[in-house]
Simulated assay, not measured.
Amino acid sequence: MTDSRSPSALSCAEPDPAITSRLKKTATGAQHQDAIYRAISDAVIEHRLKPGARLREDALAEVFGISRTGIRKVLQRLAMEQLVTLTPGKGASVTRPSAEEAHEVFEARRLVEGGLLAKLTRRVNADELQELRALADQEQQALHEREQSDAIKLSAAFHNRLAALVGNQTLTRFVDQLCSRSSLILAMYGHAGNLGCECGDHSQLIDLLQAGKSDQAAEFMGRHLDSIEASLSIDDAPEEAPDLRNIFSAYQ
């Protein structure tokens, strides 16, 4: 049986309320999961969740007011980015990078971030340089006030923004992942109150970019990352059971 209505009438028909309701619920669920993903990712990057910390699905579901199925999807997404490790029979935990992985991450960062500076030097503009200086100033202020978590997050944001300004989305995502893994490495092998680099490093790097000195900027980036890696003390850290409700209290 054919529909006697014209194509124009069909195109103007009111949407099915049931379908619209399901789409809204799906969108809301996805937004909720995105917010939870960012909350857990930030907690890792800011060192509020330490490497090896167990992430119990039932506890997270209660904290965030979501089903365990929803939490499982978030954890799987974090696992794809190597921030979380999923072990059959044991569940999820914040990834614990090995010493070999730590060295590999910094080697990758030297190659990638040093290489992107040549292109960035040719295209960065005054407004973007001002934006980078603002991030560097905020980081220095956080270090001065001994706000370690804020300083770590701002440092990662600075390196991520450098990559983003190059205009290559694939490169930007890769640097973002490397910076997130570096945060885990610093949490596991670093020292409290020390990010492994001079607090003025980022400002000096901006000066080199502004002067158009791409080779010197690349060399400086290499030394900057070398100093961070050299500051690490490679040893075993005990696993811990974090207080998830306290860590994510701001979310509730």
Score class of each variant (00 low, 15 high):
Gly29Ala: 14
Ala30Ile: 06
Ala30Val: 06
Gln33His: 00
Asp34Met: 05
Ala35Arg: 12
Tyr37Ser: 13
Arg38Asp: 10
Arg38Ser: 15
Arg38Asn: 11
Arg38Met: 12
Ala39Gln: 09
Ile40Cys: 04
Asp42Ser: 15
Val44Glu: 05
Val44Lys: 09
Val44Gln: 08
His47Phe: 10
His47Asp: 11
Arg48Leu: 14
Leu49Gln: 04
Pro51His: 11
Gly52Leu: 02
Arg54Lys: 10
Arg54Pro: 00
Arg54Ala: 15
Leu55Gly: 01
Leu55Pro: 00
Arg56Ser: 07
Glu57Met: 14
Asp58Gly: 02
Asp58His: 03
Ala59Gly: 00
Leu60Asn: 03
Ala61Asp: 00
Glu62Phe: 08
Glu62Gly: 00
Glu62Asp: 10
Phe64Ile: 07
Phe64Asn: 02
Gly65Cys: 04
Ile66Cys: 07
Ile66Val: 15
Ser67Asn: 01
Ser67Gln: 01
Thr69Phe: 09
Thr69Arg: 10
Gly70Met: 03
Lys73Asn: 05
Val74Asp: 04
Leu75Met: 15
Leu75Thr: 06
Leu75Phe: 10
Leu75His: 04
Arg77Ser: 13
Arg77Trp: 01
Arg77Ile: 02
Ala79Asn: 03
Glu81Asp: 10
Glu81Ile: 06
Leu83Trp: 02
Val84Phe: 06
Pro88Asp: 13
Pro88Thr: 13
Gly91Glu: 03
Gly91Val: 11
Ser93Leu: 08
Val94Gln: 04
Val94Ile: 11
Thr95Asp: 04
Ser98Thr: 15
Ala99Cys: 04
Glu100Phe: 13
Glu101Ala: 15
Glu101Cys: 08
Ala102Phe: 03
His103Ser: 05
His103Glu: 07
Glu104Leu: 14
Glu104Asp: 08
Glu104Phe: 11
Glu104Tyr: 04
Ala108Gln: 11
